[in-house]
Amino acid sequence: MIEAAALTKFYGETRVVDRASLTLTTPGVTAIIGPNGAGKSTLLSMIARLLPIDEGRAFVDGLDVTRTKGADLARRISVLRQENGLLARLTVRDLIGFGRFPHSRGRLTAADHAKIDEALAFLELGPLAGRYLDELSGGQRQRAFVAMVLAQDTRAILLDEPLNNLDIRHAVSMMRLVRRAADELGKVVVVVLHDINFASAFADRVVAMRDGRIVADGPVEAVVTEAVIEAVFGLPVMVREIEGQRSCLFRR
């Protein structure tokens, strides 16, 4: 599905992503964690062809992302960055409709409308379908963009810090949605997260990055440990199982 081989990105002399390799084949949620500047978003952007790759290669369904036509990739992988829709006085329904662009090239068929309705229902946006994006709250707008990506109907979905600017209630409901997209729709979801606990609560697999390198990659129990987290973030922490949920707490 997704294969990144020794991806590298330079900003000037520094390697912001340093030979990062990642393979994703099965449905599920993979969280990328790490401190600020670890290269998480840059790695995601290279896989999603939003940034040029300096070294290494990335494939989606065996297609090299730097050589494949944008429209072909857009039916296989979707990506959502943090800042979207600067000039977006579109209705929620119009926006989600644009998610069908790779399939319809602008001429929506009955099948497209069905997908749009599905996405609206999945994100419980039905009542807001006719509202303009600039009239929504931050959380609602974020959900509308996720619905657009769902309507795009790709097997792989990359989300770059989808919890930014969301309060804890909206953050939890966003992660539940991500979980459901993997469980019910069979999506391969990669999500960049700041908060270790969201990763440990909702992800199947956690990839930890530091200084551009992937330093740990495995199931939650293997990566969310005191030793790994301390090494990645450079901070002493306590990792505890609380009612079956692995949680990471900082030390005073």
């Binding site: 062809r49 944008g70 857009a74 979207n84 829709g85 000039l87 662009f101 090239r105």
Partner: peptide
């Protein structure tokens, strides 16, 4: 449609194969 998408910014446009 293409101009509307472009108005949503480069990332969204590229994501949708524009």
């Amino acid at each position: 449609d293409r101009f509307t998408l472009a108005g949503l910014g480069r990332d969204v446009s590229v994501n949708l194969g524009l």
